[in-house]
Simulated scan of single mutants.
Amino acid sequence: MKNNDFKDIIFNRKSIKVFDENVKIPREEMLEMIDEAVKAPSSVNLQPWRFVVVESQEGKDLLRPLIRFNTRQNDTSSAMIVIFGDMKCYEKAEDIYSRAVEQQLMPESVKNQLMELFMPRYENAPQQVMNDIVKIDSSLAAMQLMLVARAHGYDTNPIGGFEDDLIAEALGMDKEQYVPVLIVAIGKAAYEAHPSMRLKAEEITRFH
């Protein structure tokens, strides 16, 4: 049964370093969670996030030397979800917008405007600009995935410490097209996580 308590999901999510090794998430539920996570927003709805779910022992053995100080999460989690940003996400624009038209979510005229206005900009964008776009968008999906996971009764740990220049090729991805953004370890916590300190809003906020 899913947890629909919004406050519990938001305020009681914790980063877990060690998971119950006996808990394995079924692929059907993993896909369901990813489907829910990708309701996150993205620039002109290009959805640049791509997921590699590392769940097999062989996959985890491949990942272990690339994740620095995060081997506990790798070894005990149900899966390590490696999130990439697709630098050529604009190549799916025609498909995305056409499906939106078919589902009556936008008129054909809007689709044509989007293609004419934005696609040349994306196709000709400097590499750093595209890198920033896909990383921001994919990070939104990653955060949503962690909240969705808690709603499904699982725990997570976002991991940024890994060999970002090696991980794409190790997982069979084109490193020029797919930039690694984050790894989300997912499973059932093996311990009760302690609260962590946060700065107060007035310390980090300015009003103009």
Rank of each mutant, 00 (worst) to 15 (best):
G160S: 08
A141S: 11
K111F: 08
L46P: 00
I16D: 02
Y191C: 08
H194L: 13
K7S: 11
N74M: 11
E176D: 14
M33G: 05
S78V: 05
K60Q: 13
I136P: 08
D155L: 04
H152M: 03
M87C: 09
L66R: 02
N157D: 02
T76Y: 04
K24N: 12
N22A: 12
P41F: 04
F162H: 00
Q47C: 07
L46A: 03
P41H: 07
Y178E: 06
K200L: 13
I34S: 12
E32C: 03
S56C: 08
M106D: 00
P48H: 02
W49V: 07
R68C: 06
V181Y: 01
I136M: 13
S196E: 12
G59A: 07
Q103V: 13
G153M: 11
F6H: 07
A168N: 00
A170S: 15
G153A: 09
I183H: 00
K188C: 10
A149W: 01
Q73N: 14
V54M: 02
D132L: 12
I204Y: 07
P65W: 03
V54K: 00
I25R: 04
H194P: 08
E116L: 09
G161M: 01
D132T: 11
A189F: 02
N112M: 09
L117I: 09
I159S: 00
I25D: 03
E28C: 05
K7L: 13
F6P: 08
I34R: 09
M143F: 07
S138G: 01
E55A: 15
R50V: 13
L63I: 05
L199C: 06
M197D: 06
E163K: 15
D137L: 00
F69R: 13
E202D: 15
N131I: 03
A168D: 01
I133E: 06
L145A: 04
P48Y: 02
V38G: 02
D132R: 12
E94D: 15
H152R: 10
Y97I: 03
E192P: 05
F19Y: 15
K24V: 11
L147G: 04
L66D: 01
V38T: 14
N131K: 15
E108N: 10
F19L: 10
V110C: 08
M119R: 11
F162A: 01
M30A: 08
E176K: 12
M106S: 01
E29R: 12
S196Y: 12
I133H: 03
Q103P: 05
F207S: 11
F11K: 10
L145Y: 07
L166W: 06
F162L: 02
K88D: 15
K88N: 15
E28S: 14
D132W: 05
A168L: 00
Q113S: 12
S43K: 05
I16E: 01
